[in-house]
């Protein structure tokens, strides 16, 4: 009698439809109030995150660490599709590629012989000059598990973290050139700020005229050059490489070429196709090889 019934007019609210409406309205307003409370919490979280409070960074890093294994597994079918497509492509064009590779091989052999003699000469000269040996860098290769999500952020997520030797502010490269630098490093994941992001600043040098500048991302595919003094001397096609100033990026890493000059706006076309990346190389901080020998 007092329970739920299928008969019209005898449900939970009996013959009182106004009670049902009141109940529904109460639930709606209760939920809307909860939405309002969580909006306030979000604003507060945004404030903490913007102020770079360590706790907010820790939460972000924890969440990315937590989801990286899921992202890695989820990316397997996608990676398989891409690698299969590449294999088919290679299989179709094998003969054409082989011809090109044979010609390239001959050129490279000549260059290797020349480089070997130069290396020997370099060693002898360094010995004569009693030069302090160069420190060298080590490299870590990692896979990309997440790409930029929204138009106002240009960053990627890697499946390597502090436990693999990654540190903050490390340069990230591919064989073609500079990709960006590490920003948030978790135990098993790392976020890379791409050179196209609005917050990216890279000290560069324009080859040929040796003009120093800052390459600033603007969220488009073509970062712009800032603080250039000799604009008249710059022309489209000039090569850009890192200057090494600031200490984050090693000098002479290829970055891109100048693609457009419109008054004071100079745009750069990066060498690396940032949309087609699958793996990247992280350059670890400089290591003194004498210390490694001692170990």
């Amino acid at each position: 009698m007092f329970g739920r019934s299928n008969k019209p007019g005898f449900g939970l609210y009996g013959r009182r439809p106004w009670l049902k409406r009141a109940h529904q309205t109460f639930h709606l307003y209760r939920k809307l109030f909860l939405v309002f409370v969580f909006i306030l919490i979000s604003v507060f979280t945004l404030g903490l995150s913007y102020a770079n409070i360590p706790f907010a960074t820790k939460v972000r890093v924890f969440l990315t660490d937590l989801t990286t294994p899921v992202m890695t597994v989820a990316s397997i079918p996608y990676d398989l599709t891409i690698s299969t497509k590449n294999k088919i492509y290679k299989w179709i064009y094998t003969y054409h590629v082989l011809d090109d590779l044979e010609a390239e091989n001959v050129t490279l052999h000549t260059q290797v012989n020349r480089l070997k003699s130069l290396e020997d000469e370099n060693k002898k000269l360094r010995k004569l000059m009693k030069m302090v040996p160069d420190r060298f860098r080590t490299y870590i290769t990692a896979r990309i598990v997440a790409y930029p999500g929204r138009p106002f952020v240009k960053s990627i997520l890697l499946n390597a973290g502090a436990k693999d030797g990654v540190e903050e502010q490390q340069p990230v490269l591919t064989e073609d050139g500079l990709v960006g630098r590490t920003v948030d490093v978790g135990d098993h994941s790392t976020r890379i700020l791409l050179i196209t992001d609005l917050n990216s600043r890279v000290p560069v040098i324009i080859e040929g005229i040796n003009e120093h500048a800052i390459m600033a991302g603007d969220n488009t595919d073509h970062p712009i050059l800032k603080y250039v003094k000799q604009i008249s001397k710059i022309k489209v096609g000039d090569k850009i490489k890192t200057s090494g100033r600031g200490g984050v990026f090693a000098s002479s890493t290829p970055v891109g070429i100048i693609s457009e000059i419109d008054g004071a706006t100079i745009k750069v076309q990066p060498y690396v196709d940032l949309e087609a990346l699958t793996h990247v190389t992280l350059v670890t901080p400089l290591v003194d090889h004498r210390l490694i020998r001692m170990e």
């Binding site: 939920k31 909006i39 913007y50 939460v59 106002f152």
Partner: peptide
Amino acid sequence: ILDDALGGTYLGQNTLEFLFLYGAVL
């Protein structure tokens, strides 16, 4: 929050958007 963490935006940035959408539709 997960969307913000994975996307690299400030925590709360896309969360606000989701909550506004949810509240408006509700």
